[in-house]
Amino acid sequence: MSYSAWILLTASLVGLSCGIIGVLLILRRMAMMADAISHSVLLGIVIAFLVTRELSGVHMLIGAIAAGLVTSVLVQWLHARGVQQEASIGIVFTTLFAIGVVLIATKVGNAHLDVKHTLMGEITFIPWELINLPLVGEIPEAVFILSLVLLVVVVAIVAFYKEWKITSFDPALAASLGIPAVLMHYVFMSLVSVTTVASFDAVGAIMVVAMLITPAASAYLWTDRMSVMMVLSGAFGVVSAIVGYYVAVWLDTSISGSMAFATGILFAVSFLASPKHGLLARYVRPAAVIPDASAPPTKSLE
């Protein structure tokens, strides 16, 4: 595959996995948790580096996932003690992210780990960091990791689809049916953390947040079915990745930034043109006819 094809494939995998997970974030009204986890994982990465003095390896993944789970636990802990959830998220992620930035400035030294890399990623370097797989040959390491993450996300969503649906819409009903809502919440946070960490190094925090929230918010405007919403959200993520890449090439600018911008364009189109919730549909939809109370009732054929 060509250099551009590997970049497009990497970004598309990010768009798919983040798009699917993002639907549950939107439905659970936890969109800002994406921002919190995508920033707080920096602390886990920095601590893993300080312990091992290596910038690659499974320890970086473990450290980042641990930071994501700590973020989720702290947010829930503060919320359970009377702090509003939005405030809890803001307090936790800004504090953990600030600690990570301070550690980079004071402890990391000359290692290739900086705030710019954290925010924007290094997707242009993806095709050069290769691993050799049996029967496949050399492929970018990020493509392999993101493919595994996508597989895990799809299997987890499909295997527990009913549980995700019930716990997202009515946690009290889920508890009454014997579904462990708290356990499902932390499993979900683990999926968000893994997806965020896998995407973090390649595309940076800005694109991770954009891909987790905006495609799902766009899909929410087009359908009321969760399964269709997930398919649309994943598709919007892929389209944003492709469009954003060619916009970046055309303007000679940041690839990750352009892909994040493309998600915003898709949302704007959805906000205007979606047939049910779109702004234009509200103006062209005929006014509802008020039925005559004296008229005999009619039977619906549906």
Rank of each mutant, 00 (worst) to 15 (best):
V101H: 08
S176Y: 04
G100N: 12
A172L: 11
H112R: 15
L96C: 00
V149G: 03
D114C: 03
R81Y: 06
V46L: 02
V73Y: 08
L96Y: 03
W164E: 03
E122A: 15
N110S: 14
W164S: 05
H59M: 09
V73I: 15
A172F: 01
K116D: 12
L113Y: 01
A98D: 11
E54C: 07
R53G: 01
L135K: 15
V115N: 14
L55P: 04
T95V: 11
G178V: 09
H112G: 08
W164F: 12
I179L: 05
V136N: 10
T118M: 14
V154H: 07
Q76C: 07
L146H: 07
V152M: 05
E141M: 09
Q76I: 08
L151E: 06
G82A: 03
V136G: 12
A156I: 07
A87Q: 09
I139D: 11
I47F: 03
R53W: 03
I123V: 15
I62F: 02
V92T: 09
G109E: 10
S147K: 04
A66G: 05
I131C: 05
W164A: 02
S72M: 02
A87S: 13
F160L: 01
I65F: 02
T71M: 02
I65V: 15
E141R: 15
S72Q: 09
A105E: 14
L119F: 06
V108T: 14
T118H: 12
I179V: 13
S168Y: 07
I99N: 10
E54W: 01
V155G: 08
G82L: 01
G44V: 00
Q84E: 12
L133T: 10
A48R: 06
I126S: 10
E122D: 14
P140M: 01
V92H: 04
T71E: 08
T71Q: 06
K116S: 12
H112L: 14
G68P: 00
Q85N: 12
L55S: 09
G109S: 11
I126A: 15
K116V: 15
V115L: 06
R53T: 07
G57P: 04
F169R: 13
T71W: 00
S88H: 02
L146P: 01
L55I: 13
H39Y: 14
I47G: 00
G82N: 07
V58R: 11
D114F: 03
N110R: 12
H79T: 13
T118L: 10
S168N: 14
I89A: 02
V153A: 04
H59G: 08
H79A: 07
Q84Y: 08
L78S: 10
L133P: 11
H59N: 12
L55F: 01
T106E: 05
S88M: 04
M120S: 14
L103G: 05
L151Y: 07
I123P: 02
T167G: 10
